[in-house]
Amino acid sequence: MIDLFAGCGGMTSGFMAAKGYKSVMAVEFNLEAAATYAANFGEAHTHYADIADIPDEQVPAVDVIIGGPPCQGFSNLGSRNVNDPRNKLWKEYIRFVRHAHPKVFVIENVDRFFSSSEFALLQAETRPGGLLEEYHLEAGFLLAADFGVPQRRKRTIVIGSRIGEIPLPLPTHIRPGSLGKEPEWHTTRDVLTGLPTVPAVRDLPESWTRVFDQRVRGVFKSPDLHIGRNPTQLSLDRYRHIPPGGGRFNLPDHLLSRCWREKKTGTTDVMGRMQWDMPSLTIRTEFYKPEKGQYLHPQWHRDDPDRSVDRPITHLEAARLQTFPDDFVWCGSKIEIAKQIGNAVPSMLAEAIAHHLKPYLRGKGGTRPKELPCRLCQRRSQ
């Protein structure tokens, strides 16, 4: 397979965990993300480069192409500028499909991509005479929690196939209280329990490595990412008023900022606290800032504040909520690693897609395994 816009390798991590897949090329423009990818999957086939600078003759023939072109132009948090040049990078993805001629390709993007003009253009290329006329597209929304990820992250998934129609995968996990034999959604409790509630350090170790002839911070093991912050007294006072599932609307007037006081609706997850027995909301790139979303640790006690964990989640906790394995290693500064975590495809969502594709790639049609492996289910049962 080829991984385009590979980031730190969340999608590759999931496909490799599904067994039977081999990454022979990865392309990533950000140095620190490319360094993390190389540290986990090998530098020789990792290209730290602008995808447009990779010549056609260097694109190998493969069975599968995966990747998520940058989504900022589509994101609810972005400018929604249809002319954002990053939106056009899916055309480079098509160029790779044309030259690698995979049996299947998979695109991951934010939910708004499904209704964008860019997606309409992508669909148009599958018509007779189009660049992708050999391929049938299936597209829709997948909720990461439905596939074992302890996170309510909704994404557009596109599967292109020239070996017959391939539907989107069916959920492997169900909402608590739903009827069905599948295991229930995983929760923050499944991945945060057991980690020290008070991080021992506030910075990454002093460590550097050379990759692509560049000097980059790292390589860091996952425990190195359990780093705390130094909140102000005002922030601590705010944290202590926020119950699980709550947010800025739980704050007394004297702790509200002016913009919160004047904005009576919307941004309901701002200064929010997670819940132990639910998946988290979407982990974004600034999860270490509670004013950006529901990122406070779920432990809270109304009558015993000393037992509350009044801090945002750490980088390690965010990586676990994205279902990166604990043996994953990292390169970059704290901010760069946070971007890698927040921008990644959750590993277990990618793994579910990889398992789903296997029988089609092997010519056996859509034979769904009786029970898909789930490392969090195994941990829960233990």
Rank of each mutant, 00 (worst) to 15 (best):
F147Y: 08
V158I: 12
P128A: 12
L236D: 14
R273A: 02
A200S: 10
V82S: 07
G9M: 06
K264P: 06
G342L: 00
A61S: 10
P85I: 13
L77E: 09
V309K: 00
D304S: 10
S161F: 03
A39D: 09
P199G: 07
Q299C: 01
M348K: 11
S117L: 13
D213S: 14
S235E: 09
Q378I: 15
R162P: 04
Q233M: 11
P325A: 05
E118V: 15
P252N: 02
P325L: 04
W276E: 01
Y295S: 02
A17L: 07
R261G: 10
R210T: 15
Q322F: 01
W260S: 10
D224C: 04
A6H: 08
G67T: 04
F15Q: 04
A39P: 09
L192D: 03
I163N: 00
K292I: 03
K364S: 14
G272T: 10
R375T: 15
F119A: 12
K264G: 07
I51L: 03
D306A: 06
M11L: 11
T285S: 05
L376G: 06
W300I: 03
Q72H: 01
L131A: 09
T314Y: 00
T267N: 09
A200I: 06
C71Y: 04
D84Y: 09
N109Y: 03
S333Y: 00
A200T: 11
L179H: 15
R189H: 05
D84V: 12
L137I: 15
N83V: 14
G130D: 03
W208D: 11
R362A: 15
Y93I: 13
D203C: 06
K154G: 13
A49F: 07
H186R: 12
R375N: 11
L281K: 12
F105D: 05
T367Q: 14
N87V: 10
T46W: 08
L296M: 05
L236G: 10
E351D: 04
P55R: 06
I283T: 04
T232E: 01
V82Y: 08
Y239D: 04
G160T: 00
Y21A: 01
E351L: 04
V64E: 08
V27H: 05
A318Y: 01
R95L: 00
P359L: 05
Q72S: 02
E206C: 07
S75M: 01
T12Y: 05
P373T: 12
E118P: 08
G73A: 13
A39S: 09
E133S: 03
R302I: 12
R162C: 07
T156N: 07
R229M: 12
P359I: 07
H297C: 03
I65S: 00
I335R: 13
A139T: 15
L122H: 09
N81L: 11
T323S: 04
Q275T: 15
L256M: 11
R210N: 11
F249D: 14
L234W: 10
